[in-house]
Design a protein around this nucleic acid. Structure first.
Length: 193
DNA sequence: GGTAGGATGGGCT
DNA sequence: GCCCATCCTACCC
């Protein structure tokens, strides 16, 4: 008898304020089929007042999922080339999402290396939002997918949770550039910087 | 070790 | 038409 969903984070984990979700996702494991990685870097994107967030544009065909039920996935195309993975937070109707920026690969390493032929070292496999979607084979086809069931999920940490969290401004944005909404496991060599 | 610049396409004004 | 929540390469210390 296996216990298939015992460790999968439930909807209630995501249906909280975005900063809390962004901080607590650190140390959790993103799983897509045989490939797994521990989340080591996240960014919070908030509601209407956060002009760096895509949801600041209001409800559009692209942003509607951010206004929907927590625990679903928002994937968008960045710079015409890279897919970026976000997880929706907050109660339904209130926008908020968490950008997953880096993973520490822990399973399916061979598959990840095959998907990222340019990576010289394992540290290059998932140390950035565009890199990790490549390594995890996450694309816009996953737009709106429910992370609480299926083959794309987040699992609770197997080991002691509390990690020291470093807080910095978000990377690569121009508006709200000084808001302290990036969260990194301090000292992790797997982060994007 | 570091950084400058180009690729590339969708979303919104 | 303009603006990007990026990555990679080339080149320079």
């Amino acid at each position: 008898m296996r216990r298939p969903t015992a460790k999968v984070l439930p909807r209630s984990f995501y249906a909280r304020d975005t900063v809390t979700v962004a901080r607590e996702l650190l140390g959790k494991t993103l799983v897509h089929g045989p490939v797994k990685g521990v989340i080591v870097e996240t960014e919070a994107y908030l509601g209407a007042e956060d002009l760096a967030a895509h949801s600041a544009a209001g409800i559009t065909p692209r942003t509607r999922v951010i206004f929907g039920e927590a625990g679903h996935v928002y994937v968008y195309l960045s710079y015409g080339m890279h897919e970026c993975l976000n997880i929706v937070a907050e109660r339904e109707g209130k926008p908020g999402c968490v950008l997953i920026r880096a993973l520490q690969p822990v399973a399916g390493l061979e598959l990840m290396r095959a998907r990222r032929p340019g990576a010289k070292r394992d540290r290059d496999l998932a140390s950035g939002p565009g890199k990790l979607t490549q390594a995890m084979a996450i694309t816009r086809a996953h737009y709106g997918v429910d992370l609480t069931k299926g083959d794309l999920v987040v699992e609770a940490s197997a080991i002691a949770e509390p990690v020291e969290i470093e807080v910095t401004p978000r990377i690569g944005i121009t508006r709200c550039a000084d808001w302290p909404l990036r969260f990194v496991i301090r000292g992790s060599p797997w982060a994007s910087r």
